[in-house]
Amino acid sequence: MYDFNYHRPKDIKQAVKILRDSEDGVPMSGGMTLVPTMKQRLAAPSDVVDIAAAAGSGIKASTSKVTIKAGTTHATVASHPGIQKHCPSLAALAGMIGDPHVRNKGTIGGSIANNDPAADYPSACLALAAKIVTNKRTIDADKFFKGLFETALRDNEIITEVEFACPKRGAYAKFPNPASRYAMVGVYVADHGRKGIRVAVTGATDSAHRNKAMEKALTEDFAPGALDSVKVKSDDMNDDIHASADYRAHLVTVMAKRAVAASG
């Protein structure tokens, strides 16, 4: 890892100022992705701005929505009684990220801003119609994830909180890579009643996305069997040493069926 200047600003305003003044600064939240990336010399920022404390930790949960401050760790989300009650599928997803030690450090804001193609939270944002609040504006999840590690965030724009809509029923089913615990494929199915059904897929392509054909099939019949008629194409699926494109396409259907079955 190349050396850098470390900063721990008091608030987001100060963080933005440091980022602006730095040559090539990056914000860091839990650092669970950034630190390994710097160790591999895939990133060599001039300045690391540690915003975990500035972004803050905190959760508000009601029957209709869950609001989570960006610096909240995965462990806090997974064990929060309000989320477990009003949005159990989201608590379950947070409990499946990485391992216990990673969950004690990694944060929701960092995960979403990084948009790893195999991360879990992007699928939750899409399935739970999240609103991603930054220091500048509020962005709908549907317009946030742009591609491989790419988001709608602009320079010096920092996520401050994320607001999820609680579904009437839903579940996240994940086939983890046995070594990294990242999703080879993860599918989040959420039934929002009259606001419709959302099916979000992660790990399969270059970025989390919604599968509209599955959403349509499940609107007609919310049952695993309804997905038999939906063909998942392998054309744009990831293809690597962990799984071929065809295998991933197959997994999308299997995970979607499991998520529907677990939704109750």
Partner: peptide, 22 residues
């Protein structure tokens, strides 16, 4: 690479991987 856990310590009462902590 924050996978094996040989470096686990407690920081403010929580277990973390000291190889991935500045």
């Amino acid at each position: 690479t924050s996978q094996c856990g040989a470096c686990v310590v407690h920081v403010n009462g929580k277990a973390v991987k000291a190889c991935t902590e500045l």
